[in-house]
Write a protein that binds this DNA or RNA. Sequence first.
DNA 1: GAGTGGTCTAGACCACTGT
DNA 2: CAGTGGTCTAGACCACTCC
Lengths: 233, 233
Amino acid sequence: MTALSINNWQDVHSEVLHRIHSRQWKPGDQIPNEIELAREFGCARATVNRALQVLADSGLLDRRRKAGTRVAIHPVRKATLSIPIIKQEIEEKGLAYGYALISEARKKPPPDIRARMQISADAKILSVNTVHMADGKPYVFEDRWINVDAVPEVSSADFTKQSPNEWLVENKPFTSGDIAFSATLASQKQAEVLACKVGEALFVIERSTWDAQTAITSVRLTFAPGYRMHTDI
Amino acid sequence: MTALSINNWQDVHSEVLHRIHSRQWKPGDQIPNEIELAREFGCARATVNRALQVLADSGLLDRRRKAGTRVAIHPVRKATLSIPIIKQEIEEKGLAYGYALISEARKKPPPDIRARMQISADAKILSVNTVHMADGKPYVFEDRWINVDAVPEVSSADFTKQSPNEWLVENKPFTSGDIAFSATLASQKQAEVLACKVGEALFVIERSTWDAQTAITSVRLTFAPGYRMHTDI
DNA sequence: GAGTGGTCTAGACCACTGT
DNA sequence: CAGTGGTCTAGACCACTCC
C-alpha cells in the first residue's frame, strides 16, 4: 500500500491525468469539485484549481461554473507550434545559414494581397522577394508584402544583409495575426529560386500580422521539397 | 490624465503587453521585478505573477530566478493548432459528413511504420484504409496502422460505420504523440481515392500516439487538393 | 437561489542561479 | 550569499449558470 503524496500542482495534474488515462474517470464523467479534491489530496483549493485549469487549457477537461468539471468527451488535442525565425530554425538544425535578396520594389498590391491585408488599391506597399539557404542549398522562398504606412521605418531598412523576416521581428511587434498551411505545385519561378523541378510538391506557410487594426505584413513562405514541420503533442 | 485601474491579472497582462508593443520595454530590457510591479499596479504579487507567467508561456518574456524578467529578444510566436476529429472538422464547416472503409487487414508492418512505431517485425498490426467525405466529395484519405497488442479491443471494433480516427479517440486515450506536416504529390492510389489527378499537390499530416512507452497507432492523413489548415496567432 | 469555478490577497517558504 | 521567480496556504468575494 503506497500512499501517494501530493505536494504541488504538478502532482495534482499528473494524478488527475492518471485517473483519466486509466479510465477511472471516463469521458463525460463529472469529477469531484475543487473543495473535495483539495480535501482528498490534502492541499489547498488554489493548488487543485491551478492543475485543473492547465488540464482544461489543454482540452482534456471541460469546466463550467455551477455545472462543475467533466472529462472532455472528445479530448481535442492541441499542438503548439512555435514559429521560429527562419535563420534560427536553420541554425538550430546545425546547418549554415545563407540569405539572398532577389528583388525589392514598391508595387501596387495585387487583389489577393489587398484582400488579405484589407488595404486600398493605392496603399504604399513594398514587395520583397528573398531566399533563405541551408548549407548553401535553397531552403525557403520568402514572398513578402509590407504595408509602408504601418511601418514607415522600413524605407530605410537594408534587406541585402538582413531578411525582412528577421528585420520585422526585431523592429515591428504585432498584436495579432493568422497563419495557414497548405501544399502547392512548384511554379516556374519557385522552381528556379528553390532549385527544384516545376511541379514538385511544396509546403507553404502564409502569414499575416496586424498592429491593432492595421495590417503590417503578409508573407508566403514556400519551402524546398521534402520540408516537414514537426512538433510533439 | 487618465489613471489606469488594475484589478485583475488580465489587466496586468494587457498593460505589460502594451508596454512591450509600444516599445517602452524593448526586446532585451529587464523589466521591474514582481514586487515593484505589484506596488505600481496596486495589486498582490500573485496577480502580477499570474500575468507574467502567461506572457512567458506565450514566448514574449524570458523569466529566470535571480536574473529577473526580460522582454524576449526574438519573440518566438506560438501557434496553437487544435487537432480535431475529422468528422467534427467537416461538420463545423457546415458540410455533410460521409465515410467509407476501403480496406482492413492484418499485415506485417513495412519498415517505415516499424521504425515510426518502434515495434518488431512480427508485431500484430492492423492496417485500415478509409476515406472521409464532405458533401459527398473525398476530403481526406486515412492510412492507419494500429498496434493490436496495445489495443486488443480493436479486434472487435466495426470500422464499416465508425472511422478508426473516431473510434480511437473514444476508446484509447494516449499520453504522448508527435505530429508532422508536409506536402506530397498524389500517387496513383491517392488520386483514385481522392478523385484527383496523379501529381497534384496534397497536404499531409502524419501522427503517432503512445501510451507511456507503447505505440498505439500511426496514421497518415492525405487531404484532397486545396486543403488549408488555418489558425490565429 | 445556490453551487461551482475564477480570482484576489497577504504572507510564507522554497528553488534556482548570478555574482 | 542574496535576489528573483515559483509555489503553497487560508480565507474571502465574485461571476456565472443550472435548476
